[in-house]
Design a protein around this nucleic acid. Structure first.
Lengths: 187, 187
DNA sequence: ATGATAATACCAACCAGTCGGTTTGTAAAG
DNA sequence: CTTTACAAACCGACTGGTTGGTATTATCAT
């Protein structure tokens, strides 16, 4: 068993650090993610943060992987509840994008990282690998133009959410999502 | 006539500053846009830069407005070449997004700004106003779920371009764009 | 036309603050 | 006693912005 009454619980601190980093990045963007601030929010000194993540880059990368894992499990969850294999992956991708789990700031986080990918080749590589792995796992809609189209739209949807625009036309938005879901059944 | 052999040509310098800012932001992201670097690339001192844009924020905002104007003229151009009013705006929006004018780095720029909006309420406000103005001008596809869907997908497309992913499945991509265009005719 | 005056368009140096990272120290766990 | 898990202080590099000054251009009375 993992010791219960330890005073030092590094794994918990590590998780707390990731959570703090996530909240900072969601609120103020990745650019404003400073070691001092993250450490302070996690109730840890900067030295303590550096102990777990030896550099800022390592912290950002750790957070990125964490988010990717969350998104992946969300997609997997939608898939498991979907008995129709037709376009299932794109459908789940759409749902996971349009209805993010957790706090609404999460889409902001996704946005922050998408931004980072455009200038950080390493993050972009991680993302590419993830996409490739997903396409391998869910080969149902590989190469489908409609599937790709739906996933494009899904990206646009959370982009809108992360930019905070389009809060008005919620009705049209819901209708657009409905149509997208319909489309996935014709893959 | 505007004097020809002037030594000081502030408007040209201003344009050069915007161009430099654009190239820096496209290459390294908005976060790496420093006054020193922009000034250096424009062949101007930092003081000179500050003279034209009194703060970093003003520079970023100026660049944002500049890009918005470029995108708007691109959209307008597609619209003017399109005789079918049905879904014309969404179609033009899609084309302008999927086939950016100028250097390929421009989509990176759009990406940088789109995602910067998530953390800069002021930029987001400018964007919202622009969208509202566009929707007012091209009322053809206001409130259309299909139009919104297409524009979502358009956003996703340049997001992909800006992240540098998906260079492989160009064929599927082209096919997806074709289908999106088709969709706009059914608005 | 011309010289004085004001306004504009810059530049070089500097300042105060911030940030990533290092170093040193220390208490707890094994 | 060694290793782990932190804390506290510190450092060098960098950044946005200021200041004080200079060269150029525009205005205008003479």
């Amino acid at each position: 068993m993992t010791n219960n009454n330890r005073k030092r619980q590094p794994e918990i601190v590590r998780e707390q650090l990731l959570a703090s980093a996530a909240s900072v990045a969601a609120e103020r963007g990745l650019g404003a993610l400073t070691l001092d601030l993250v450490a302070q929010r996690a109730g840890v000194s900067k030295g303590g943060l550096i102990h777990h993540f030896p550099s800022r880059r390592a912290l950002v990368e750790g957070l990125f992987n964490h988010l990717l894992a969350l998104f992946e499990s969300s997609v997997a969850n939608y898939i498991s509840q979907d008995s129709n294999p037709r376009g299932r992956f794109s459908r789940a991708y759409l749902m996971a994008s349009a209805f993010p789990v957790g706090d609404p700031d999460e889409s902001k986080l996704h946005g922050a990282f998408a931004l980072a990918m455009s200038n950080d080749e390493h993050l972009a590589a991680i993302w590419r690998e993830w996409v490739a792995a997903q396409m391998g796992k869910h080969s149902e809609d590989v190469g489908s133009a409609i599937g790709l189209m739906v996933r494009y739209a899904a990206d646009g949807i959370w982009l809108e959410a992360c930019a905070g625009t389009g809060a008005d036309c919620a009705k049209t938005r819901a209708s657009a999502i409905d149509r997208l879901i319909e489309l996935t059944y014709s893959i």
